[in-house]
C-alpha cells in the first residue's frame, strides 16, 4: 500500500518551512500519524512533504497560570508532563484516552488538532463526500450515519471531529497561535474549525501554508481538582469516541460558581454546551442540577436515522461526567 511520489524536504528553520509550506501541492509533516494513512489510501497526494518535526516548537511552559504547549510536542510528552498533570489533568486524561502508546509517541499536538475526520464516506475513495470531493454530495446523511454529527452539520456534511484533546481544550477556552507568511495570529480553538456549507466542508480556517505553532490555556488551573474527560466508545481502548464529554466545575460554598462542558463525537468541532453551563451556575451540585444540564445538552440536536441513539447517550454522558466531577464537593 503506498501513494503517489512526493519530494521530501526537511525544514531547517520556521521561516523556511512557512515559504515551503505555502507552495501549491505542499503539505507539512509532523508525526505522520494521520498524513501517512491518508496518503496510503490516496486521500492525500502532496507533491512536496515539508518535514517540520525538528523545528523548536515542542516546549511546554507554565507561568502565572498560563500554559503554552508547542504544536510539535508529542502527545505522550504532554500527557506525562508534570505541569500538565498537575494543573490540567483533563488534558492528560483526554490524550491518554486518544490512541495507543505507539501512536501517542509519534503524534503531535498540532497534528492531533488538524487530524481529518474519521467519517467512512470521507475515508473511502469513490463514495460521495463534499469534504474530499466538493460538490459530490454527502453519503452519510442517507447512508451509514452512526457516527454522524448531532449538531453543526449541514445538508452537505455531517462529519464529526475526532480529536479527544480538542474537546478538553475547548472546555478550557484554549487558544491557538498560528504562523503564516503574513505573520502570527491567535484565535480561539473553536474558530479553527468552520461549519460545513451546502457543498463544501473545509476542515480548518488556516490559510495555505499557515501552521499552528502553539496551544495556550490561560487561567484555568482552578478547575484542576474538579474536571474529567469521559469517553464513550465501542471498545474499552484505542478507539474513537462515539460520544465524549469534558466537564469542569468550580464550586464555592456548596454552589456551582463556574461550569465548563464540551462534547466530542457529536459535531464538526468540539461542541461547547453553553446552555448546560449557564443552567448550572448558582445551583448546588446535585442530581437535579446535573439532570437539567443533561437535558439542555441535547436541545437542538438534529439526529439522523443511524445516530439517534447518541441523543440519550450524550444526555447520560453529561450527567455521568458531572457526577464524577461533583463527587466529594
Amino acid at each position: 500500500m503506498s501513494g503517489p511520489s512526493f519530494r521530501y524536504i526537511r525544514a531547517a528553520r520556521l521561516d523556511d518551512a512557512l515559504s515551503q509550506g505555502a507552495r501549491q501541492g505542499a503539505t507539512y509533516l509532523a508525526g505522520g500519524a494521520d498524513l501517512l494513512p491518508l496518503w496510503k489510501a490516496g486521500l492525500a497526494a502532496p507533491t512536496e512533504v515539508i518535514d517540520i518535526s525538528r523545528l523548536p516548537l515542542s516546549q511546554v511552559s507554565y507561568a502565572g497560570d498560563a500554559l503554552a504547549v508547542g504544536a510539535l510536542a508529542r502527545l505522550s510528552d504532554v500527557s506525562a508532563h508534570p505541569v500538565v498533570k498537575r494543573h490540567h489533568p483533563m488534558i492528560a486524561e483526554a490524550i491518554l484516552a486518544s490512541a495507543s502508546g505507539q501512536v501517542r509517541n509519534l503524534a503531535t499536538i498540532g497534528g492531533n488538532l488538524l487530524q481529518r475526520t474519521r467519517c467512512t464516506y470521507f475515508r473511502t475513495d469513490g463514495l460521495a463526500c463534499n469534504k474530499r470531493d466538493p460538490g459530490s454530495g454527502c453519503g452519510a446523511r442517507r447512508g451509514e450515519s452512526r457516527h454522524a454529527a448531532l449538531f453543526g452539520g449541514s445538508v452537505g456534511c455531517v462529519a464529526t471531529h475526532a480529536s479527544d484533546l480538542a474537546v478538553a481544550l475547548a472546555a478550557l477556552d484554549a487558544e491557538i497561535s498560528c504562523r503564516g507568511l503574513t505573520g502570527e495570529r491567535r484565535l480561539a480553538l473553536q474558530d479553527l474549525y468552520p461549519l460545513p456549507g451546502a457543498t463544501t466542508a473545509p476542515d480548518t480556517s488556516l490559510a495555505d501554508g499557515e501552521m499552528i505553532t502553539a496551544v495556550h490555556i490561560d487561567g484555568a488551573a482552578r478547575f484542576a481538582a474538579q474536571s474529567t474527560y469521559l469517553k464513550v466508545r465501542d471498545r474499552a481502548s484505542f478507539e474513537f469516541a462515539v460520544v465524549s464529554v469534558a466537564a469542569a466545575l468550580r464550586i464555592e460554598r456548596g454552589v456551582i460558581a463556574e461550569a465548563r462542558l464540551a462534547a466530542g463525537g457529536v459535531a464538526p468541532l468540539p461542541w461547547r454546551l453553553g446552555r448546560s453551563e449557564a443552567a448550572l451556575i448558582g445551583r448546588a451540585p446535585t442530581g437535579e442540577a446535573f439532570a437539567l444540564a443533561g437535558e439542555l445538552a441535547v436541545e437542538g440536536a438534529t439526529p439522523l436515522a443511524g445516530n439517534a441513539f447518541k441523543v440519550p447517550l450524550l444526555h447520560n454522558a453529561v450527567i455521568r461526567a458531572l457526577q464524577t466531577v461533583g463527587e466529594g464537593s
Binding site: Y8, G31, L36, D51, G101, Q102
Partner: peptide, 18 residues
Amino acid sequence: TVLVEGRRIASCLALAAS
C-alpha cells in the same frame, strides 16, 4: 512496533526520511 530511543512507535506510520 519498534523502539526509537527506547520509545515505542508504529513504524508503518513513520516516514523513514524523518
